[in-house]
């Protein structure tokens, strides 16, 4: 184990996954604080450009959920 923490860019659909992430909070589920969420109106908005840009800016992972 090291202290290294990954940086994960997360695109969440406003109508489903973003709400689910809210519900995870309401339910007080605990998960690692490595995600940075970008709210999108629909996962269809996530262009491949954004994913590449996230990696270019140092993300270790990109998660698109919708």
């Amino acid at each position: 184990m090291t202290d290294w923490e990954p940086k994960i860019t997360t695109f969440l659909c406003n109508w489903c996954s973003y709400g689910a992430a809210d519900l995870a909070g309401v339910s007080r589920l605990q998960y690692p604080p490595d995600f940075r969420v970008i709210r999108v109106p629909c996962s269809g908005r996530v262009s491949p450009k954004f994913i590449l840009a996230a990696f270019r800016h140092g993300s270790d992972g990109v998660w698109v959920s919708g």
Partner: peptide
């Protein structure tokens, strides 16, 4: 969203939650 997606889900890691 620093409550549902931050303080509530990282309550044992205040430093990292603050950074987030």
């Amino acid at each position: 969203n620093i409550r549902n997606q931050d303080s509530w889900v990282h309550k044992d890691e205040p430093d990292m939650a603050t950074q987030k």
